[in-house]
Design a binder for these strands. Structure first.
Lengths: 212, 212
DNA sequence: GCTGGGGGTGAGCAAGCGCTTAGGGTTGGG
DNA sequence: CCCAACCCTAAGCGCTTGCTCACCCCCAGC
């Protein structure tokens, strides 16, 4: 876990999707959805990007919405794993918060294309599929809240409103996917480090001074 | 300026749009775009919400995109006025930062429907119209940056990266439009106050302790 | 009471949409 | 050498889209 951080900490982002043709279609869909949004993307565009005819899509996926569902589920699962791994990891609450924010932000920056779809196309999912994904989101919220509560209990943090701060921290990190890489001014690691510092300050555990 | 804060500080959000029929269409479009997104909204839906036939829309607007452009321009102008008013107002850098974040967030929460369209449907605009709006966005960025720079120069703030922190502050505030009012747990004023406090902490001017 | 014109409608066009179906090329087992 | 299983495509179906056009209604001015 060192050089691959630039891709958000993943070596093979969609390695779990098989067969190969299905993966190519899914990657094409991620790019198209991220660029133009779900509703503005046509199945012909997705198939075209994958080098196939429009009909080929329906051999591997029942509908266009199933593609979004698969992308959203895999993406949210990955994001949740990052947060829970940090929340349940070793170290003080401050250590865990830094690691959570850092790795979560690195993923949203390094995998900005995927993250944009995952975070901003939720409403395009059907009723049932959206409900599934909302459950994963709640667990993301719970992981961050757990760290903040622990920090408050331990006297490490000074936070007047744990729920509100949880929301603000997640909101701040998620929005990275919207603006990242408009130019190449920062690397994912740099944004991750900066945001970890900002969030530490938000919970009253910041170190105004130490970092050069 | 007291009770009307719940609507984001505006008495008559679209009062500048005339004649009446054009305003009704525009308000219908804002609601539809906010609910389903620009691309998923049909001109029939907009006209229907305004109580008119599909053809009536084209008496007042040339295209569906012109509607979005009008909404986006008016909305961004309003948001920019809020930030510049705070940035160029009286008081210390900390005072101005608090006022900027507070009023900006109150608007994004109170006018969440409008703000969602303004902040998240930018890419749906045509090339030229988007370029216009991007200029307004840059001025928003400049206003916040001005406050932060002043605070650093005056020794009030301790901020390692002014550009990055400017981005983070704006990102945090803008994202309020995405999540606000999923339930009614906070009022716009409450979110505004909480966010102003969080941002003060981010710039190293927070007061961990004072507020109960 | 007639009239002219601005605000509105019903019907519909061309284009593009998600998705289906009949059929063709390639490959591995007998 | 055949053939069946597997992927994929060309063509196109039924529908919806943004938008247009011929027409109508209502009301102020003479």
């Amino acid at each position: 876990m060192s050089t691959a951080e630039e891709t958000g900490g993943e070596n093979m982002p969609w390695g779990e999707v098989t067969p190969d043709a299905a993966r190519r279609l899914l990657i094409a869909a991620v790019e198209a959805f991220a660029e133009r949004g779900y509703h503005a993307t046509t199945t012909r565009d997705i198939a075209g990007r994958a080098g196939m005819s429009p009909a080929a899509l329906y051999i591997h996926y029942k509908t266009k919405e199933e593609l979004l569902h698969k992308i959203s589920t895999i993406g949210h699962t990955k994001a949740l794993a990052i947060l829970e791994s940090a929340a349940d990891g070793p170290g003080s609450a401050a250590d865990r918060l830094v690691e959570a924010v850092r790795s979560f932000v690195v993923w949203h920056a390094g995998q900005a294309t995927t993250a944009r779809v995952v975070q901003y196309e939720l409403d395009a999912l059907g009723e049932e599929h959206r409900a599934e994904v909302v459950l994963l989101r709640r667990r993301c919220d719970a992981a961050v809240r757990r760290i903040l509560s622990d920090g408050v209990d331990a006297g490490e943090f000074e936070v007047p409103d744990v729920s509100g701060t949880t929301l603000a921290v997640l909101s701040l990190c998620i929005d990275v996917a919207r603006w990242f890489s408009l130019d190449g001014r920062w690397t994912p690691d740099e944004v991750g480090a900066m945001y970890a510092d900002l969030v530490l300050r938000m919970v009253g555990a910041g170190a105004p001074g130490p970092q050069n």
